[in-house]
Lab assay of single mutants.
Amino acid sequence: QVNIAPGSLDKALNQYAAHSGFTLSVDASLTRGKQSNGLHGDYDVESGLQQLLDGSGLQVKPLGNNSWTLEP
């Protein structure tokens, strides 16, 4: 069960990665100043990332080996 409060997208993504045990490689300029609506409930990694990114204009991309990145 994930419980991440709304706020900074950077912070939300870092909390989610730490909670879910995956690696997220992101260029900080992509997420700077963006906000997230947070995340509450049970999600697989990709669904949770998509939910956190909702409205940010960013997309999640798998890199393999439980690693992910973001792209515009």
Rank of each mutant, 00 (worst) to 15 (best):
V2Y: 11
V2L: 09
V2E: 03
V2M: 08
V2W: 10
N3M: 11
N3E: 09
N3W: 13
N3I: 12
I4C: 07
I4Q: 02
I4R: 01
A5P: 14
A5C: 13
A5M: 11
P6H: 06
P6M: 07
G7V: 05
G7E: 02
G7T: 10
S8Y: 08
L9Q: 02
K11A: 14
A12N: 05
A12V: 15
L13N: 01
L13Q: 01
L13S: 01
L13A: 02
N14L: 14
N14A: 15
N14T: 13
Q15R: 06
Q15A: 13
Y16N: 01
Y16F: 15
Y16E: 00
A17L: 06
A17R: 07
A17Q: 08
A18T: 09
A18K: 12
A18I: 12
H19D: 09
H19P: 04
H19Y: 13
S20H: 15
S20Q: 13
G21N: 09
G21L: 05
F22E: 01
F22T: 02
T23Q: 10
T23P: 02
T23R: 08
L24R: 01
L24P: 03
L24S: 02
L24Y: 09
S25I: 15
V26C: 11
V26E: 02
V26G: 08
D27F: 05
A28I: 10
S29D: 12
L30N: 04
L30R: 00
T31A: 03
T31G: 03
T31P: 01
T31F: 06
R32E: 13
R32Y: 13
R32N: 11
G33E: 06
G33A: 05
K34M: 08
K34E: 06
Q35I: 13
Q35C: 15
Q35P: 05
S36C: 10
N37M: 12
N37F: 11
N37K: 14
G38C: 06
L39H: 00
H40D: 08
H40R: 13
G41A: 02
G41S: 02
D42R: 13
D42M: 14
D42Q: 12
D42F: 15
Y43F: 11
Y43I: 05
Y43H: 07
Y43Q: 03
D44V: 05
D44T: 12
V45I: 14
V45A: 06
E46N: 07
E46C: 15
E46G: 10
S47C: 13
S47A: 12
G48N: 04
G48K: 00
L49R: 01
L49T: 00
L49H: 02
Q50M: 13
Q50F: 09
Q50L: 12
L52N: 00
L53C: 08
L53D: 00
L53V: 12
D54L: 15
G55E: 04
S56F: 07
S56L: 09
S56R: 01
S56H: 11
S56G: 01
G57R: 05
L58F: 05
L58V: 03
L58E: 01
Q59W: 10
V60G: 09
V60I: 12
V60S: 10
V60D: 00
V60A: 15
V60R: 03
K61V: 13
K61W: 07
K61P: 02
K61L: 08
P62F: 15
L63M: 11
G64Y: 04
N65P: 13
N65Q: 10
N65S: 09
N66E: 05
N66V: 00
N66A: 05
N66C: 09
N66R: 05
S67M: 13
S67Q: 12
S67F: 10
S67R: 13
W68N: 00
W68S: 00
W68Q: 00
T69Q: 10
T69N: 04
T69Y: 09
L70S: 00
L70V: 13
P72K: 10
P72E: 10
P72W: 09
P72N: 07
